[in-house]
Design a protein around this nucleic acid. Structure first.
Lengths: 206, 206
DNA sequence: GTTTGTGAAGATATTCACAGCT
DNA sequence: AGCTGTGAATATCTTCACAAAC
């Protein structure tokens, strides 16, 4: 394998591979070939082989891939081996749902701090996390949290973002329906639910 | 303009254009050129022009685009002009949040039916919608609903999907962390929150 | 002068197809 | 024989750059 820039599209698929490998392992499978693996994920087998080959020669010709080994490698590449401490800003309906979302824990993410500006919510404990006033975002620095989830209204999102960057956040999962401006070192991933549903009618018949 | 298959990537951007045009209109702008429009969305101006040109000659050389006209056209293309009646299956934390999500109404989506299998929830009214037993999915047929949001655990998602297709659903927004198998006529859009956060640590420094 | 719409070029991503390893 | 890893071919998407429209 020679060095090449790893495509973003590859990185997007790796978590899917991790989840599927986890299922295979739970099923007691120890080996898998690219054909069967790809079929389970509805992707092209060559795609799987190329994606994996960016990171090393994980497979054995004539045999396939060792489920456990590839799983370990991918977790390592994605930096999911150690707990990723995460802060949540905005504990409305969506934020509350995210606080209890089991998918995060499965991937080794832990929400260790939550913030809101509603006096009625501050001090309340939800899913073992005490909701703090947004004025106390400094707690993020103390707790050395580097990842934040933004679930506030769009008007507030940019200001919150800037304060999050100040206290050391370098990765943001943004649920607010707006574009965030951040320094180059900070990575933002946007989840814009309304934008996704908005293109659904286009594809429908009649 | 000659006919060409419209790229999926273009369709993904149209809802963003709709939202931005809405903001411009609320600001009282009546015209906009591709340069300024693109800047507001952090995309390339040529991209905007090409995206729009797939659907007709919306702009005037030397002048730009008429905000109102393009907004109307895009809403038309995306089939957002009439109310899109939507059913929600699964009224847990996430489902509840979606029931109250203002972004849907802004785009002309209305959740007209909600289903769950928890006896404690059935009969309860949330956001003006009565939660029904999942055994009553037939209501979807009666109400002529064509779009559904799935917010159930992954184990239940495929079975629910099949029943939804039986009662006439042709578009699905799937929040369950799994791949759904559907007939060709049915369009599925997946929102997999855990998969999005799972690639965030990869991009972080150190 | 300004800005569109688009052919052509460039960039990126996917898939084929097969040499080479087990 | 079975399967990987990958060069080459293909497909898809983005951006440039400019003639034509206003």
């Amino acid at each position: 394998m020679r060095y090449r820039k790893i495509p973003d599209e590859t990185i997007k698929r790796l978590p899917l591979y991790v989840r599927h490998l986890q299922l295979l392992m739970d099923d007691g499978r120890s080996r898998i070939c690219s054909n069967e693996f790809a079929e389970g994920l509805c992707v092209n087998p060559a795609q799987v082989r190329r994606d994996l080959s960016f990171f090393g020669n994980f497979g054995k010709p004539g045999v396939g891939y060792d489920v456990k080994k590839v799983l370990r490698q991918l977790r390592n590449i994605l930096k999911l081996k150690n707990v990723n401490k995460t802060a949540l800003v905005g504990v409305g309906d969506l934020g509350s749902a995210l606080l209890g979302y089991p998918g995060f824990l499965q991937l080794n993410f832990e929400i260790v701090a939550a913030f809101d500006n509603d006096p009625k919510k501050i001090g309340v404990t939800k899913n073992n996390v005490v909701i703090e006033n947004v004025s106390k975002l400094n707690l993020i620095k103390q707790k050395k949290v580097r990842i934040a989830i933004i679930a506030v209204p769009p008007e507030a999102a940019q200001q919150i973002t800037e304060r999050l960057v100040e206290v050391g956040i370098v990765g943001i999962l943004n649920f607010a329906p707006c574009y965030l401006t951040v320094p180059k070192k900070v990575k933002v991933i946007n989840i814009d639910i309304a934008m996704d549903i908005a293109r659904l009618p286009y594809y429908l018949p009649r």
